[in-house]
């Protein structure tokens, strides 16, 4: 699974992208967040306030209950501020 981070999540995690292989019981975006947050103090800091984290699965916005699978591209980022 390819995980991407943008804006301050990228700065807090310390990388823009990583390949991960979560266990089978990680089935959705919310579960992936909990699993990633336990990987390192930097991950924990990035995901400390879940209300400030948005996600996309395969480049479409996704809610915490959206399923994730091994070949997915999952991105995490703050609320968007374009325009």
């Amino acid at each position: 699974m390819r995980v991407l981070y943008f804006a301050w999540l990228r700065q807090k995690v310390g990388t823009a992208e990583e390949e991960v292989a979560p266990p089978e019981d990680v089935r959705d975006v919310g579960g992936l967040i909990r699993w990633l947050a336990a990987r390192s103090p930097a991950h924990a800091a990035a995901f400390a306030d879940p209300r400030q984290v948005r996600a996309a699965v395969n480049q479409d916005f996704a809610t915490p209950d959206h399923p994730v699978a091994a070949n997915d591209e999952v991105a995490f980022f703050p609320p968007v501020t374009g325009g």
Binding site: F6, A7, A56, F61, F77, P78, V80, T81, G82, G83
Partner: peptide, 14 residues
Amino acid sequence: LIDWLKTKAPFWKR
């Protein structure tokens, strides 16, 4: 379009 771009397009400003 501009209202949508502000809230639903993946851009971040620093």
